[in-house]
Simulated scan of single mutants.
Amino acid sequence: MTAPQAAASETASILIVDDMEENLVALEAVLGSLGHVVRARSGEEALKAMLRQEFAVVLIDVLMPGMNGFETAANIKGLDQTKDVPIILLTGAAVDPNYAYRGYTVGAADFLIKPFDPWLLRTKVNVFLDLFRKNRQLVDQSDQLKRLLTADGGHPGVAPAAPAPADAATEPSYGTGHQNPTDAAEGSAPPEEPDRLSEVVGQLAQAELLLRDANGPGGADLADRIVELEQAVGRLMAQRET
């Protein structure tokens, strides 16, 4: 992974949504050391922020004027661009017993009652940050493998062949016992290699689809699939060198 790609994978932003300034200050103090914290004072402002940039997790206060926390969460889950972002709902101590149920029905991943334990909040948020980084790393690896396999028509590590001469008479002769280097290069690839490369590219496409849907324990299975793909690429490249 190159330096820019590694930096991108490590970037994780947290969105905190509350209409009370003192609550935003408290949340930022607790979470500021974990990642880049962005504030929003309303559900509408939160939705605009999420359409502008990518977030690893969003924390939303339930009791807000206008669009409340439940409505904000439902709108987030209703957009293709933001539907996979984990949501933690926050509410005060005098909470309706049905609030937690309502939160989970609109797609929230967790529900915390204020005043919350700072250590507990940091721990929960850190789980989503780690998952975000791992998924980004898997996406980067998948992209790198796809570029490797699809470069130059699906032949990894091989430079494009020079165009054929317009006049066959100008093609150099290599004499008896000498093989045309272009023919030698083409002959070195196993006949079945294009089909095998196509199969690996198909596996990468399937992994990409799974990565887009990953938002939980499936990350470990995806990592195993990426390892298998890397091994397959290594075997193909080793065959080309023999």
Rank of each mutant, 00 (worst) to 15 (best):
A161R: 10
P165S: 14
S188C: 10
D167W: 08
A168L: 14
L148K: 04
T182S: 13
G177T: 08
A185L: 15
L131F: 14
N135F: 01
L149H: 01
D152M: 08
L145G: 00
T176P: 12
Q179S: 08
E171M: 12
D143G: 02
N180S: 15
Q137K: 13
A168F: 11
A164P: 02
G157L: 07
F132S: 07
A169T: 00
H155M: 14
K146L: 11
A168M: 13
H155S: 09
A162Q: 03
L131P: 00
A162C: 05
K134V: 09
D152S: 15
D143H: 12
A185F: 04
A166T: 08
K146N: 06
A151S: 10
S142W: 01
G157Y: 09
R133G: 04
A168G: 07
D183G: 04
V139A: 09
P172W: 04
T176C: 10
D140S: 15
T150H: 02
Q144A: 05
G187I: 04
L138R: 00
P156K: 02
S188Y: 07
G177I: 09
L129E: 00
T176V: 14
L149V: 09
H155N: 01
A185M: 12
L145Q: 03
P172H: 01
D183P: 01
L129H: 01
P156S: 06
P163G: 11
A159E: 03
T170Q: 11
D143M: 11
H155A: 10
P181I: 10
A159V: 08
L148A: 10
A169F: 15
V139Q: 04
T182H: 08
D183Q: 12
D130W: 09
E171R: 13
L138G: 00
D143K: 05
D183W: 05
L131A: 14
P172N: 08
G187A: 15
T176M: 14
R136V: 05
D140F: 07
A159W: 07
G157D: 13
L131V: 06
P172C: 07
Q137S: 11
A166I: 13
D167V: 12
R147W: 08
A159F: 09
A166C: 07
D152H: 12
G187M: 15
S188G: 08
D152L: 00
D140I: 14
P163T: 06
Q179C: 10
G175W: 06
L148E: 10
H155Y: 12
F132N: 02
D130H: 10
A168C: 12
T182A: 15
G177R: 04
E171P: 01
A168D: 09
R133W: 05
P156G: 06
D130P: 00
A161P: 06
A166Y: 11
E171F: 12
D152F: 06
P172D: 02
A169Y: 11
E186K: 13
P156R: 01
G175Y: 09
Q144T: 02
A185Y: 06
P163K: 05
T170W: 04
D167S: 11
S142I: 03
S142Y: 01
L149D: 00
A164M: 14
E186F: 15
A159R: 02
D183E: 11
L149N: 01
T150K: 03
S142F: 03
G175E: 05
P172S: 08
